[in-house]
C-alpha cells in the first residue's frame, strides 16, 4: 500500500452520514453525490479537498445511515484516509469494504485543520509533520488485511471466485 499523505480536514464528534452524504442526492450517481459531501457544515469541502487529504473526526464518526455513499463520496473526492477517535460501526465496515483506510486514533483531537499528515494503515501510524508528532495506532485488523491488500471487498471477492474458493 502506498503512503497516504495530505492536509487534515478536521470535524468534531458524532459526524453523521446525512451531512457526509445528504439524502436529497441519494437518487443521483455517487459522483454527483460527492459534489455535495459535507455541504451543510463545510460547503467548500467538495471543491477544495485534494487527493491524499485526510479527514479527521472526533468520536463516533459516520453515525447514522447504512448508506455506503458516505465513504464512497470521500473516496471519489480523493480522501486518502479517515482518522477518528472512534467510528460508527456501519461507516467503519463500509469504508474498509471500499478500500478507504480508517484508523482509530485516541489523540485525533490534537490535530488541527490544515496540518500535514501521513498515515500508514498497515503498520498503524499517523505522523503530524506540522506539529512534529508521531502517533502509533491500531493497524487494520488482521482478518481484514487480505481484503484491504486486495483493494476492498469487490476485488477480494473477485479473487476468491477466480480461485474457486466461492461456489457459484
Amino acid at each position: 500500500m502506498t503512503a497516504i499523505a495530505g492536509r487534515a480536514w478536521v470535524f468534531g464528534d458524532n459526524i453523521d452520514t446525512d451531512v457526509i452524504a445528504p439524502g436529497a442526492y441519494l437518487k443521483f450517481s455517487p459522483e454527483e453525490m460527492a459534489r455535495h459531501c459535507f455541504e451543510a457544515i463545510a460547503p467548500d469541502f467538495a471543491t477544495k479537498v485534494e487527493v491524499g487529504d485526510i479527514v479527521v473526526g472526533g468520536r463516533n464518526f459516520g453515525m447514522g445511515s447504512s448508506r455506503e455513499q458516505a465513504p464512497q463520496a470521500l473516496k471519489i473526492l480523493g480522501v486518502g484516509a479517515v482518522v477518528a477517535v472512534s467510528f460508527a460501526r456501519i461507516f467503519y465496515r463500509n469504508a474498509l469494504n471500499l478500500g478507504l483506510p480508517v484508523l482509530f486514533l485516541p489523540q485525533a483531537e490534537e490535530i488541527a485543520a490544515g496540518d500535514h499528515l501521513s498515515v500508514d494503515p498497515v503498520a498503524g501510524a499517523v505522523v503530524n509533520a506540522t506539529q512534529d508528532r508521531t502517533y502509533p495506532c491500531d493497524p487494520i485488523p488482521d482478518h481484514l488485511m487480505a481484503m484491504i491488500a486486495d483493494g476492498g471487498l469487490m476485488p477480494h471477492l473477485k479473487k476468491r471466485i477466480e480461485a474457486g474458493l466461492i461456489k457459484q
Partner: peptide, 9 residues
C-alpha cells in the same frame, strides 16, 4: 445493518 458492498458479499 450493512452497506451495499457488504450486502453484495
Amino acid at each position: 445493518g450493512y452497506g451495499a458492498t457488504e450486502m453484495t458479499g
